[in-house]
Design a protein around this nucleic acid. Structure first.
Length: 888
DNA sequence: ACGTAGCATGGTC
DNA sequence: TGACCATGCTACG
């Protein structure tokens, strides 16, 4: 309208374009503009407005006037000023607010959309959010939606969903259209939406477009069209004068286009809420859709409570649709489509997983999907903008006296859209046709370019879900997954894609961080692991979290360069540190805290050895003794380094070793508990030893010198395993000897077991280390205790506690042997390498065990942290056969 | 042995 | 505290 189209409130002239008067210094407020601001009027116009005569006075000749179906009163439905003054009737036509109140049990505040009115919480929230445009919204909004036919009649498919769509976005005009129709019926939902929307606006979520447009236009681009007829109105809304600077709901109208600057009437939007607010559930009223609203609300059209007021309908903010105009455009496909955003949901790991079940937010499901009374639910036909049709089974499971709604058979669709956990699927309804559209948004973590590309290619691909139930006939043809692909038959599902950001469950979502951050965090964590050292005089306990060992310190740990702690001959505690440049080991006081990068030049404690040219104090033998610990400690603390996907056929060996190690270390845990409980399955974002590896042995192979997470962990674990063994061995020796007499067989095993480990027995010059490494079984803090001497043998398949139950002939024998071999080679190699030079000579040994395993089964366990060149590689042949058993 | 269906559990809000 | 919901768990095919 003329009056509204004008200038911003900043003008000195009355906002009413039909009035040339100047505003007073303190202009009076009129209706809320789409920008969220309030029109500033001259005193005269303001008075007229406040008296509710604004349209009668200034818009008499304008279009958009309609008569109340009940009292015949004329209402200017096409004006923002009167937007709140009427209600759209389901059957068409409008009803003035007064009549609407009579017919519908509304909340106290008539100026609010019915939904709002019903919703007690809304008002409160609104307080916080300045009236967001309620006036505008209200204009269309308050209207009780009594008549809108429910989209989903209880059991009858209703193709005509559009009539009930609350917010419609008329893409053809780029205007948001709000359907006024649904208000009354789903008050609660609407309220929520409104609230939500308001919040979103507050939060600056996606309705930018609308906002922007609104600002530009200054007018509400609200479409008041009620179905079939559009009654855009401007109504005066004196009541809402809040000064929210936030974009009004009207803003929401994301789709408003500049073209429509003045076309408020043309705009839709009874509810001006832009898409965000999901359509009111009004549709569902009749549906008996249970649930959808809150019990507290008077649900029912006409004020009757809903049959089932099962849930409260407050859609959580996370389900608010945040469509962008682009999304909408893409979804609509054809310019004549009108989209009504319903809700959205970030895919959880489960949703995106193979199970093919997409958990639907209860309220959303109840509000926007057909009501279902049987757990089996109903099939819903889905169609994307490209014409692909899908059928999902919409059903529920009883859950805690409630229901858990799911869409089954979504896997094909998810894959087709290349979605993964963290991505967002959006549901909206497309008119005409009443189809629910399932679009998507990739996780925000995607790079801009990536997103752009996706946007061009597949982003926004939407799937339209026919509100009508899928034809059972066709359903029967559908495969189990419910995938139909009429047009997409033959379409290859682009499965793929790197699932970088693994899916995050709801819980995770809360903790969700962008990939970049994640990476940073990970690095930090890794570094910290490598640098963390127990405070002096403290013995760390070891806890295992998701497969990783962490040292726990009672006091704050010390950060610094990893060193080898030891006790010299005089009993003094010292630590050995390796120079970054020359790789020589230097002796330092135990309390020395070193930077992550340390060189001889920093050796202020021993000036004579502050040069790389200075001889190393330690002899090879001494180092040999220290090394195992060193490796253990270092690797343990440096569990991870950047993963370098290098293609070498060592992965399987690593896998095997890793698994063996895991088994070995996990001895103290109830079998299975670890993997099963924590990671029953491979999880793409998890960094545990299981998940950091490609599933099923797929993925890049690792070189023996690889220092990736997996390799590091494997090496570390293996070393730890060996260490424990050594320790236990000495402890058990006595006992073994004793048993020997009783069990010759065992003795034999023991003998075989005793590895030529030079470190055995006397290693661990450092008590602390010993504890942390092998852990004392007595240590109560040790969550995962492990050592299981196991008769001299390490049976990775057995729990230490039950070692006694083992028999020499147990199945574990072969694996043990493998381990033994590996250990031997490891130690031997280590000695050799160490004694010779520190350069990393990776010698790959052929697998032992005779089963002709792949060459790749050897693993270099000698790599030390940080610098591969200083590694002390050793190759551990592993039987392929062990792989399976170990992984199991 | 494996995959699935459906319920159970527990964390988060 | 209860509702919601992600995911675990397991009986079953």
């Amino acid at each position: 309208m003329t009056s509204t189209s004008g200038a911003a409130s900043s003008s000195k002239i009355c906002f009413n374009s039909d009035c040339k008067d100047l505003k007073s210094e303190r202009p009076r407020k009129g209706w809320r503009l789409r920008t969220g601001e309030l029109a500033e009027l001259c005193d005269r116009c303001a008075s007229v407005y406040e008296e509710g005569r604004f349209c009668d006075t200034f818009h008499l000749n304008a279009s958009g006037w309609r008569s109340c179906e009940s009292c015949g009163k004329r209402v200017h439905c096409g004006c923002i000023v009167s937007a709140h003054a009427f209600t759209l009737l389901d059957a068409g036509g409008i009803e003035c607010l007064a009549c609407a109140r009579k017919n519908v049990v509304l909340g106290s505040n008539s100026s609010w959309p019915s939904s709002l009115l019903f919703n007690t919480s809304l008002p409160e929230r609104l307080k916080d959010y300045p009236a967001k445009n309620w006036s505008q919204l209200a204009g269309s909004g308050p209207v009780p939606w009594r008549q809108a036919p429910s989209l989903f009649n209880s059991s009858i498919p209703q193709p005509e969903l559009h009539s009930s769509v609350p917010y419609e976005v008329d893409l053809s005009t780029s205007i948001d259209r709000l359907n006024a129709t649904e208000r009354l019926s789903t008050p609660s939902l609407e309220k929520k939406r409104i609230e939500d929307f308001g919040e979103r606006l507050m939060n600056g979520s996606s309705l930018k477009l609308g906002t922007r447009d609104i600002h530009e236009n200054g007018n509400a681009g609200i479409n008041c069209d009620e179905q079939p007829s559009s009654c855009s109105t401007k109504s005066q809304q004196p009541s809402l004068k809040e000064e929210s600077s936030k974009p009004p709901f009207g803003l929401v109208v994301p789709y408003t286009s500049p073209d429509e600057v003045n076309g408020q009437l043309g705009l839709s939007g009874t509810h001006s809420r832009p898409n965000p607010q999901p359509p009111l559930a009004k549709q569902f009223h009749n549906n008996q859709h249970n649930g959808h609203d809150s019990s507290s609300e008077p649900q029912t059209r006409n004020g009757k409570p809903r049959p089932d007021g099962r849930g409260r309908n407050q859609l959580f903010p996370r389900y608010w649709p945040r469509f962008t105009d682009q999304d909408l455009l893409q979804i609509s496909g054809d310019s004549n489509s009108v989209i009504t955003p319903l809700f959205e949901k970030m895919l959880s790991a489960s949703d995106a997983g193979r199970i093919g079940r997409l958990v639907l937010p209860k309220k959303c499901a109840e509000a926007y999907f057909p009501p279902i009374s049987q757990p089996e639910g109903l099939p819903l036909k889905v169609q994307d903008s490209k014409g692909k049709e899908w059928i999902f089974q919409f059903r529920f499971w009883p859950n805690n006296n409630s229901r858990m709604y799911v869409l089954e058979g979504v896997t094909p669709c998810i894959q087709n859209m290349q979605l993964q956990a963290g991505d967002v699927v959006t549901f909206s309804r497309l008119e005409p046709g009443g189809k629910l559209v399932m679009g998507f948004r990739k996780a925000s973590t995607a790079s801009a370019s990536e997103q752009d590309n996706e946007a061009k290619s597949n982003n926004g691909v939407s799937v339209h879900v026919d509100t009508e139930l899928a034809d059972p006939a066709s359903w029967s043809k559908v495969d189990k997954s419910g995938y139909i692909a009429k047009e997409a038959i033959g379409t290859k599902l682009a499965v793929s894609r790197k699932r970088k950001s693994s899916t995050l469950g709801s819980k995770s979502k809360r903790l969700r961080i962008d990939n970049e951050d994640l990476i940073e965090l990970k690095i930090t964590w890794e570094e910290a692991q490598g640098l963390l050292r127990p405070p002096l005089n403290h013995i760390p306990s070891v806890v295992v979290i998701e497969g990783f060992e962490f040292e726990e310190y009672e006091d704050a740990p010390i950060l610094g360069k990893p060193t080898i702690r030891a006790t010299d001959s005089s009993g003094e505690k010292i630590q050995w540190v390796q120079c970054e440049d020359c790789s020589k080991w230097r002796r330092l006081p135990s309390n020395a805290l070193l930077p992550s990068k340390w060189t001889c030049s920093s050796n202020s404690w021993d000036p004579e050895r502050s040069f790389c040219s200075a001889a190393q104090e330690l002899t090879a033998e001494q180092l040999e003794d220290l090394l195992p610990h060193c490796n253990s400690v270092a690797s343990k603390k440096m569990k991870a380094t950047k993963q370098e996907p290098e293609n070498v056929d060592a992965l399987e060996g690593l896998d095997t070793l890793a698994n063996l190690a895991i088994l070995g270390e996990g001895e103290g845990l109830p079998a299975s508990s670890q993997a099963t409980t924590k990671h029953p399955r491979h999880r793409p974002g998890c960094s545990c030893i299981v998940c950091i590896q490609p599933p099923s042995g797929k993925g890049p192979k690792h070189k023996q010198t690889c220092t990736c997470n997996v390799c590091q962990t494997v090496k570390r674990r293996f070393r730890t395993l060996m260490l424990r063994r050594e320790k236990k061995q000495s402890q058990k020796e006595a006992e073994t000897t004793r048993k020997k007499q009783q069990s010759p067989m065992r003795d034999k095993l023991m003998d075989d077991d005793s590895l030529p480990c030079s470190n055995a027995g006397n290693s661990s010059p450092n008590p602390i280390k010993v504890v942390s490494e092998g852990g004392s079984d007595d240590d109560p803090n040790r969550v995962k205790s492990s050592t299981s001497p196991f008769k001299g043998q390490i049976d990775l398949n057995i729990q230490p506690e039950r070692e006694e139950e083992l028999s020499p002939g147990s199945d574990s024998g072969s694996m043990m042997k493998l381990l033994q071999d590996a250990t031997e080679r490891y130690l031997r190699q280590q000695r050799l390498n160490f004694g010779g030079n520190s350069s990393s000579v990776v010698t790959q040994t052929q697998p032992v065990g005779g089963t002709g395993d792949k060459i790749g089964n050897s693993v270099n366990l000698g790599a030390s942290h940080q610098d591969p060149d200083r590694d002390h590689p050793a190759v551990f042949p592993i039987k392929a056969s062990a792989h399976t058993s170990a992984t199991g």
